[in-house]
Structures are given as structure tokens and as C-alpha cells.
Amino acid sequence: MKKLRFEYEEEYIKNSRGVELFACRWVPSSSPRALVFLCHGYAMECSSFMRECGIRLAAAGYAVFGMDYEGHGRSKGARCYIKKFSNIVNDCYDYYTFISAQEEYKEKGRFLYGESMGGAVALLLHKKYPSFWNGAILVAPMCKISEKVKPHPVVINLLTRVEDIIPKWKIVPTKDVIDAAFKDPVKREEIRNNKLIYQDKPRLKTALEMLRTSMDLEETLHEITLPFLVLHGEADIVTDPEISKALFEKASTRDKTIKLYPGMWHGLTSGEPDANVDLVFADIVNWLDVRTGDSASLTTVTPIRGNNTSNVEKVVDGVSNNSQEKSKRPQATSTHLCGLNGGGRRLVHRSSM
């Protein structure tokens, strides 16, 4: 397979609550086959941790867009504090639909890519707007917290009683997820040295929001109707591979594929030996290629009409572009990837590969 040249860019936007969020993209130099929107896992981020994913998919011809959730990575907000899980879903929805509405992308297929907790985000994005997405790639999705790492029911009950009193307290007892998730010791150490990754104890409200979200998803798997590829390591002790099997069995969509990898852990794309990572990405790219090769399948979702910009503000040199004239919203243009003139964003970094 011929690898394409691509550009990497970073920017800042503001969400509907006025919080500054970091976003990045890997875009092929030629017209992309389709758009892929990243949903990263709990405590993770896009620019470094998901860099390999962005590079590989862009080299295969896909435009890849990522955003650090509020409180995660380079985004503002209390570190890894999730007040409402719906805030994450709504922020991703606003930004990713905004990207999809831009002139150069309006006719492109739209795929979600979620890892771990990001798998839950992707599924909830689908449920929020079922006819918008062409498909989803779910890597070890958090549809249920594994019993091997979930706190005891007595502990959960006690914590629920005080969540509104001490929501940000880092008091949730958990095992070391990095040790449990990433098999390759060298890659594990690189992840541990990534200062953008939150490695403290989970905050009380955050842990309970994740638990409730996974439980709700577990009960509504039959409502999933979009095409999907779910991938899971059979030796994963962070998210339960059995729930990926349940997702595959219960989802209503006809186009569904499951890949189970014997002996692999939770970090399929970032924590396994290189040969295993190559295998996983080959499966992902092949699945995307098959679905983007059939133009008819890409026309079955809701077409883009106009620009969805109501909840997205670009930031220029730390100042929202809405701060001077509230009535005007940023307009998507064909120069959005060509420098500071593209939508008025604060460009942090840009490089060609």
C-alpha cells in the first residue's frame, strides 16, 4: 500500500461552556477517502498518545481529527474531572459536526474511532445522531467496567452518597491501569513519562460518571444501528472482552465485525509489540477501505446541509473570535487547512510528513 504525505496541525477552540479545548488533525495532501474522528480514552490525549493512530490513518488516505476532552491533555479544566459524561459527548458532537460541515468535507464519509472510554463516547455520539455517522471503530470499548478493576459494591454505595459533597476528591481506590493495560515495557514507560496523561487517582464524580455510563450502555446495546468494527484483546483486564462480544451479538446493525486477539492486552494500538500493533492497524485500515470503496454506502447517512457552528468558537491568540462581535460565527472555508486565514483559529503547530 502506498503511503500518502500528510500535514499535522493543532488549534484551540471553545466549547459551549466557554472552556478552551485543544484539537489536532492529520490531513493527507490529496483529497481524503473519508473523515475519521478520534475519541480518546480516560486520562489520555490525542496529540502524543494517539499520534500513531493519526499518522497511520492519514498515511492510508484518511483525514483524522482529534480533540482533548475538557480537563484532559492540553485542554483547560480541572484535570480529568468529568462533571457530566454528556459534556464530553456534546463537545465532540459540536466540533466534529462543525468539521464535517466544511465545504471540502461535506461529501466525505464520517467515521468515529473510539478507544476504551472513547468507545463509549463514540457509541453515545451515534445514539445522539444515529443517521449521521457512516460507521465506528471501537478498540477495547468501555461498555462495561471489568469486575477485575471495579470497586466493591459497598465502596460504590458509600462514594455515591458523598459525590455531590466532594466531587473532585481523588479518593477512588484503583489498581495501576498503565501496568494493566500496556504489555510492552518500553511503550509502557513512554506512556508513563507522558506528562499530558493523567496518572493520579480518579476523582470521585469522574469514576461514578464512567461507571453509570458503562452500565447504561450495557443495557442499551440493542439500540446500536451503525456499522462497526470492534477489536479487543482476549487478555484485557481493564475493559471486559465479553462485553464486546455482547455488543456484537446484541447490536441491531447488520454490518458488524468483531476481532478478538488472543494474548493481547487492553492497549491494542499503543501497548503491544510492534508486530501486534501492525496487525491491528491492518485490520482497521482494511475495514475502512472496504466501506469507503463503496460510494453507495456513504450516501445512506444524513447529508450535510449548511454549517453547524452554533457551539464552536475558534480561539485566536488566546481570545475567542466571538469576544468582539457576538453575532458572527466562524465560517468554514476551503482554506481551513492552509494557515491562520482558515477560520481564524490559533494555530499552535503545523508540519508536513
Rank of each mutant, 00 (worst) to 15 (best):
S327Q: 10
R346H: 15
G293C: 06
Y12R: 13
K150D: 12
M210L: 15
M117L: 14
H336V: 15
Y113F: 13
D216P: 01
L208D: 02
A120V: 02
G267F: 10
G118K: 01
G41V: 05
G77Q: 04
E249P: 05
R33G: 00
E163R: 01
N311K: 06
P130Q: 06
F228L: 05
E163Q: 05
R305T: 06
D289M: 04
H222A: 11
W26T: 04
R346P: 07
K183L: 15
W169R: 09
I171C: 13
R17W: 06
K195N: 10
V285W: 05
I191G: 04
D216R: 00
A101N: 07
M67K: 04
T160Y: 08
E7Y: 13
L340R: 11
I237L: 14
F111Q: 01
G77H: 02
K2F: 08
V177I: 15
R17F: 07
V312R: 06
N322A: 12
K128L: 09
D240T: 14
M353C: 07
N194G: 09
R329K: 15
G306I: 06
G54H: 02
P173W: 11
G293N: 08
D289W: 01
W169D: 03
P130D: 05
L204C: 03
R329Q: 10
D236V: 11
S310I: 06
S214F: 00
R291W: 04
Y198F: 15
M117N: 00
Q324F: 15
T213M: 00
W26S: 04
V348C: 12
K170G: 08
D91Y: 03
S327A: 13
P28K: 09
G109T: 00
T220Q: 07
E189M: 15
G135K: 03
